[in-house]
Structures are given as structure tokens and as C-alpha cells.
Design a protein around this nucleic acid. Structure first.
Lengths: 337, 337
DNA sequence: ACTTGGCACTCAGGAACACCGAGTGCTAGA
DNA sequence: TCTAGCACTCGGTGTTCCTGAGTGCCAAGT
């Protein structure tokens, strides 16, 4: 049904359309890609490809444009990820190496990716539930309030003000801090819930209400916000491209954490670090855009996802290369810290 | 030169143009604003206003459009800030009251303001140099590295990993922590530099290199990053409006902290909490946009600025009302925490 | 001295129309 | 199975014309 030449034609159509943004016709195709066949032959192949739904024409007597299905085939079988140039790699390295903390890593990563791909970059903050506790700190603010500061092994710091059910003097706070650290230090955040259930029972009676309050806030901080935070950069790159769905919808989606989360997609459990490509209508929302994403994090400890969002008409090989490379570098950086 | 009626005409032109986005003609004006004069008279006034540079016509035989100078006069003399409705106020209150920490306050504020004005909202993080130190924490990571966590009275938390010049065991870290807190606790960050110069001399000889390292990082954290962070929301609201300068430039400016900083403007020392309105060409960059901004923070302790960015053709009275109200509420919230 | 009605003038925007050319589908021949 | 030729389609462009909103100016009215 689809012999090699037809596939070559499809590949050529995608490449030309991506670079010119204009429907590509048989004649231009035949000469620019030295297919060694005549335009007429190309036309026949195009008719077949259209029959199968891989390409379409915006109107009669116009050139062809790839459909989502066409891009899909292109990504799956007709292209290979394009590695970055040496200069680009060095740029990534030096740019990311300057980061001073986790916030900075994420900010730099998202900007870097946006610049590299000339698209909108999206980075999810490392998931807390996969981190481990490095330190818990209680800072007395006054006798009824303490600030809880949680530090994880990825360098993430979370803080919350806690209203205590009773006045507590500083010594007792110090004691509680020691107890908490002894229990929680080094253990994964996913284990915290059990500890929370367990801990109050092993404490002197008078400490229980206070500890219970603190722990409930701690739990809330960890569990509820665990993967909500997503940042983006490169919105200016949207200005040129035109989206089927309208620019407004895209910008709105970018500011909706929930939508972004859905778009970045869940990692399939077995291959978390694989590149995911969702093309046009394959997306839950934002039918008119494509998303190239991947998990990042050190080794099998996948922390979160990052990726790029752009028009379906994007340069997939290059974009995929950039996303993969950035994910690797940022994983390295995080593993080292 | 500009009698009352001419001013009334200008006001009417601004109001009509803002609401319809179309050049306004003499006839429509005369009847919609019951000026009690004929279109011909209005035309004469318009000619005078155009002569003075307050309005202009996009092309011959079209209606008139306000110039930047016209908007300026309108804002300064012809309009008054429009207070929010009761419902809006309640919405602000409940929305901001739910914030759990400083980050949350800022995020909620910027979204709220964007939604309220249907423009792009911009909020600068509270300036560190105006805050005071509430607590300094040193967390040992291993014997050569500690994490420095700084907590300010506004609830802001800053962290940095420090590489020590020599191995230091935990006891000594604890000791240093106590020393640092004793020195720094409660004092304004602007005083820190003096303390830094002063402190090492009062310490045992063997502690000096370590303390010097820590203090230099502390100083760097405080001083250099003190007012860089600015966030925005509501970019989707740009989708409708068309900018003289092009959408791309606006989006780029929004992602450039430096530009954004310049746009928000410095507070004039004597009236930091006054509303600042910059119209079109009055702006350093982004000539095609207007900015309504104000300082916020409790009392005379102005912390930072927030505001709204939109097309010159914006509803100034309403926007100014929203900005002022939000600034007041967020100041309240911050003062309480 | 200002206001008003009348009138000629201007010009952007839309409708009607023709034309061009890129691109197609089809068919007959190599 | 590929290729050349040919008639056909139709979006885009350029031209022309028309309309109507809006102006500027002048002369008459208050």
C-alpha cells in the first residue's frame, strides 16, 4: 500500500511544509528532493497518501499539507531525532551550570529550552513525593505561631506558617524539631503519611495536639502541592505562528496549571524517560498544538516532566533533540546537587 | 483656549473610543453624550483639539482618536478613579485571604489583578532590602557543604548551598548558627553589610574563614537579587487587543525581568503609594502600551510595586481603581502576617 | 461672537469582475 | 509502471466602481 517512494514523498512534504509554511505542490517537490521521478508520478503518490488520510489539501488546486496522521507517521517512522550541535551543547552546559538553587535550575531550564527550540517551553517542578527529607526546621515566630521549613534532597525548600492550638515556648519547639528530624530525616516523602499516623502515639501526652497540628500541615504541604507547579517561557515565540485554535486559547492554557499538567501527560510507568510526542488532535485540550515532552530526573528516580509546545507544523526532529538533550543535562545537574 | 465644552468633548471622545475601539465622529458624539450642541459645533471643537495635539484622525474623513497627550489630559483632569463594586471587593478579600505563604500571596495577587482588569497584571516581589531578618538557618548537607536558609519578616524564604573552605562538623555549624542569629535577628537587611564587615573580627581565629564564606554568600543572596523577581499573569488578555508595537514585543518584554522592572518604574521617594500612569510614548520601552502601577506594602514601609499593562486604549478609571484596591488589600495582608 | 444648517469634498472599505498561475486529475502512450 | 500532455479548478491579486461616514468651510441665525 505504502511503498518506500510514497513514504519518501510524505517525508518530503512534511519537511517542505515545515520549512516554508505553504502547501507543497508536486512540481516543487519533485525537483527539490531529487526523487528521480516526474511530478506526475508524485501526484499519483500524493493521491494515494491523501486517500489514506496522511495529507490533505486546503482547497482544490492547492498543494498538500500533512494531517495529524501524517505527522504521526513521520515522527514514528520517517525521521530520527536530530542531535544538537556542539556549540548548543556547550551553551546548555554553561548556562545550567550557573544555577544556584532548584528554583534557578528550573527557571534557567525553561528559558534555555524556549530559546533553543524557538517554541514555548514548559517545565514541571520536581515532584516532591519522589524526594527525600533532608531537614525539617521549626522557626518560632511568636508563641502561637511557628514557621515550618522543609528542605528536600533536591534542594527544594517549602515553607508554611502554622497557627498552633496553644502557646508553646521556644524550648519545646526546639525539642519538637529534634524529634521530627530524628523521625523524618532521610526518609522519602511518600513514607511520611505512615509516620504521621504513627508518631503522635509515641509522644508525651501534652505534646500531641501541637505535633498533630504540625504534622497535618506538613502532610498538606507535601502531598497536596506535590506536582502542581509548572512554569513556562517563550510565549513570545507564539506571536509568529498561527494556531488553529486561536492564540488566546493557547495563552490561557499556559496559565492554567491543571491544563498544562494534562498536556505534559503522565509518564508511562515502564519508560518514564522516553520522549512523548502528542500531535494536534491527540492532545486532550488544545487540539491545534503539538507537544514534545519527556521525564527528567536522575536514573530511575524520575522527578517530573518537561517539554515544548508549538504548532503541529513544527520541526519535530530538532525539537525532540533539544528536549531530550536538555532533559539529560538537567537530570545530571540535579543528580549532582 | 480649552474651555469646558472642549474638555467635555475630549472626555466624550476618550470614553467612546475606549468602549467602541472605533474612531468617533462628531454626529455620534453629539447625540450620545447629550452635549446640547450640534455636530457642527462639535466639529469646531474637535478641530481645536486636534490643533493642540489631543486627538488625531487615522485618515482624512474618519473620526477622531485620542493621542497619548489626549489620554494624559483625560487621566489628569477629566476622570476620577472608579471604585470597585462591593462584589469585587469581597472577591478580592476572600481570594487573597486564602494565601498560605508569600509566594502564594504574590501568585494570587497577580492572577486576581489580571482577572479584574482583563489586562496583563505585573507584580514585583517584595524587596528584600526593606525586610528584616527573622531567622537564619544553617543546615549541614555533608562536612563541606551547608545550606543557608534565610527567613524574613514578610515570610520570604531564600536558600543557597554553600561550599565551605574546610570540613566543619555539625556542632560547629550549630554554634555558628547561634552566633549568626544573635547578630542578625530582627535587624533590617540594609544593615547587614556593616555587620558583615564587623563580625569576623569578634570571632575566634579558627572560625573566620568559614564565617567569611558564609557571610559573603549571605550578602550576595540578599543584595544582588533584591528586586529582580517579577511575575505576570493574564497574557491571554493580549490576544484580543492589537498593539502598535506588535504582540511579539509585548510578550518578550514580559519575560524580561529587566525591562519589566523599568516599566513598573521607580517610586518617587515622597509619594511611593501614589498611582503612576504611563501612557504610550511616555514609557521607556514598549511605546504602544500604557502602564498603571503603584507601590504596595504596609504603611511607609513600601515593599515593591504592582500594576497593569495594556493598550493605550484602556479604561483608565476602572483600571486605576482595581490597581489601587488590590494594592491596598495586599498591603493589608502582608502587614498582618 | 458663537452656534448652526447646508454643502461640497475626501477617502476607507466593500462588492463585482476579470485574470493569472500554481496545482490537480485524467488519459493515452512509452 | 511511469511519464507527458491537457483541460480544469480556484485562491489570490489587481481594477474599478460605489457607498457612506465624516470632514471643512461658509453663510445665515441668534
Amino acid at each position: 500500500m505504502l511503498d518506500d517512494r510514497k513514504l519518501a514523498v510524505l517525508r518530503a512534504i512534511v519537511e517542505d511544509y515545515v520549512s516554508t509554511n505553504e502547501p507543497v505542490g508536486s512540481k516543487a517537490l519533485a525537483e527539490r528532493h531529487n526523487l528521480k521521478v516526474s511530478p506526475a508520478t508524485v501526484r499519483n503518490d500524493m493521491a494515494a497518501l491523501e486517500e489514506e488520510g496522511y495529507i490533505t489539501q486546503p482547497h482544490t488546486s492547492a498543494g498538500r499539507v500533512p494531517t495529524d496522521k501524517g505527522y504521526r507517521l513521520f515522527v514514528d517512522r520517517l525521521s530520527q531525532v536530530k542531535p544538537l550541535s556542539g556549540a548548543e551543547r556547550r551553551a546548555i552546559e554553561t548556562f545550567l551550570a550557573g544555577a544556584v538553587d532548584l528554583d534557578d535550575v528550573v527557571t534557567r531550564t525553561v528559558r534555555l529550552l524556549a530559546q533553543l527550540t524557538r517554541q514555548v517551553a514548559v517545565v514541571q517542578y520536581p515532584t516532591l513525593t519522589r524526594s527525600t527529607v533532608r531537614h525539617v526546621e521549626l522557626v518560632p515566630l511568636n508563641d502561637r505561631r511557628v514557621m515550618l521549613v522543609l528542605i528536600t534532597n533536591t534542594g527544594r525548600v517549602e515553607q508554611r506558617v502554622i497557627e498552633l492550638p496553644e502557646a508553646v515556648e521556644d524550648d519545646r519547639i526546639a525539642h519538637l524539631r529534634a524529634v521530627l528530624n530524628a523521625c523524618l530525616d532521610g526518609c522519602g516523602l511518600s513514607n511520611v503519611p505512615e509516620l504521621v499516623a504513627d508518631l503522635p502515639g509515641r509522644l508525651p501526652h501534652e505534646d500531641r495536639p501541637v505535633v498533630a497540628t504540625i504534622l497535618s500541615v506538613l502532610l498538606e504541604t507535601l502531598v497536596e502541592r506535590h506536582d502542581e507547579k509548572i512554569v513556562f517561557a517563550g510565549a513570545a515565540n507564539l506571536a509568529g505562528a498561527d494556531f488553529a485554535t486561536g492564540l488566546r486559547d493557547v495563552l490561557e492554557a499556559l496559565e492554567e496549571q491543571v491544563v498544562l499538567m494534562r498536556l505534559l501527560g503522565e509518564t508511562s510507568a515502564d519508560t518514564p524517560s522516553a520522549l512523548t510526542v502528542r500531535i494536534g488532535s491527540e492532545n486532550p485540550y488544545l487540539r491545534g498544538t503539538s507537544i514534545v515532552a519527556t521525564g527528567y530526573g536522575s536514573g530511575d528516580n524520575q522527578l517530573a516532566r518537561l517539554g515544548v509546545l508549538g504548532p503541529t507544523r513544527m520541526d519535530y526532529p530538532v525539537t525532540m533533540g533539544a528536549v531530550r538533550a536538555v532533559a539529560r543535562y538537567v537530570s545530571q545537574i540535579l543528580a549532582a546537587s
